[in-house]
Design a protein around this nucleic acid. Structure first.
Lengths: 230, 230
DNA sequence: GTGACACTGTCAGTTAGGCGACAAGCCCTA
DNA sequence: TAGGGCTTGTCGCCTAACTGACAGTGTCAC
């Protein structure tokens, strides 16, 4: 009855460009990656720093965010094992475009700039694979912009829940359970809303019998109704 | 006294990936591009259509936008001569991620999917150049998201004016004149705001003596003050 | 010239959502 | 097992920004 997609891994998404490579090249790339343990809350890099390495999440999870001078923060993306990040600054030979921070203890695989660039030169397939990843990213980001500029919070939240359900939900009959690793505050930062507003909208969805929120996750009781809000 | 960047061309930005190629490859790419005249208002492609060609703006200008089912629109980017677009759908082998529409009469250079993919295969430098462009795009888009999620309209508008001034402003001593090809309505669609709100904020800037708006453009009288709002 | 038309300017009414405050619940560690 | 600290639940107030409406103004076609 349960056919949950494992645990949010990205082994075969374009966001894991390494897995898209021909076996021989992939092996060479893997050989150049060095493990680096990370602790929850640890900063991996900050906006504006010199970019010196690219990363893949091996275990745990990593978030990318932007922060204004006044300290307001937007949480752009949460990366699961398999997903790669940090190439923008390297490819452009410039500075970090975002902040990256570990959300849980875990491990990264890292490759320094020099090695990465040499590998890219030797194996053009790498650029092709990264290009695919960038296209996916751009698409995601266009959706995000459209959403945040044009849709009211309720709809944005519904859409996000649907997205999370398809990516990391465990289905039980009609219902879908999403193990929540985000506080309402963080959800707010992803949707560009305050913690209180998120709480209000979640309460509304619960009152309507569409979802059931518990401490460790959200259960979507009525996926059809949720989709209707979208 | 005047050192205006010509007329908003992009001949050497990464957004013109063709110009970044080694001469021999560039020539080959150019040879494969076919001219296609465009008329103001003409749709070049629509979100969700099959992607069958890539383009470069030769003359005129082209805008990309997204529209919700309810008809709300966001104007994402306006492309000047030199700038290339339409690769995402092709590279992914899937559908258009946005709408593209001509803003003025002009001409595009177009290359069909098949030829483009063959060229990419033959010349890996092309992927490298496009990768650079995608990185620039992602950076722009991150900035955009940060802005629209975290900054009030007044600040967003000021930042946009500064951006436009650096990209296409004609400097005269202290003052910078921006030839405006955008209505306030369109500016609103770029900043995720209503026409009326844009008008209000522009009027405020004028009252403060920071800008002077005329029918065909905006003159920044006090760039320092504008920057201070940023 | 004279309409037609698109854009700008402005106002009043409404609302989504931010923010501060505080209580209550859960969890972890001493 | 008690207390500290994070998270959730809920108020009330406040304001930025949307919407609709209408008048003024410049521009173009005829």
């Amino acid at each position: 009855m349960i056919d949950s997609p494992p645990n949010g891994e990205n082994r075969d998404s374009t966001l894991n460009w390494i897995a898209q490579l021909p076996a021989a090249v992939e092996a060479e790339v893997r050989a150049a990656l060095k493990p680096r343990p990370i602790q929850a809350g640890e900063t991996i890099y900050r906006f504006g720093e010199e970019a010196d390495a690219i990363y893949q999440v091996t275990s745990g999870s990593v978030q990318t965010s932007n922060v204004t001078a006044e300290g307001k923060e937007i949480l752009l993306h949460i990366m699961q094992p398999g997903e790669c990040f940090g190439e923008i600054g390297i490819i452009e030979g410039s500075l970090r475009a975002q902040n990256a921070e570990a959300r849980e203890d875990g491990e990264l695989a890292a490759m320094n700039k020099k090695e990465f660039n040499e590998l890219r030169k030797r194996h053009p397939e790498i650029n092709e694979a990264i290009l695919q990843m960038q296209c996916t990213r751009l698409r995601m980001v266009f959706m995000f912009i459209e959403d945040s500029a044009l849709r009211p919070l309720r709809q944005r939240l519904a859409r996000r829940l649907v997205l999370m359900a398809t990516m990391m939900g465990a289905q039980k009959g009609e219902q879908i359970f999403i193990k929540l690793t985000l506080s309402q505050e963080e959800l707010g930062k992803m949707l560009g809303a305050s913690r209180q507003s998120i709480n209000k909208e979640l309460s509304y969805l619960e009152k309507e019998g569409i979802v059931d929120k518990s401490r460790d996750g959200i259960c979507i009781l009525d996926p059809a109704a949720l989709n209707a809000i979208t």
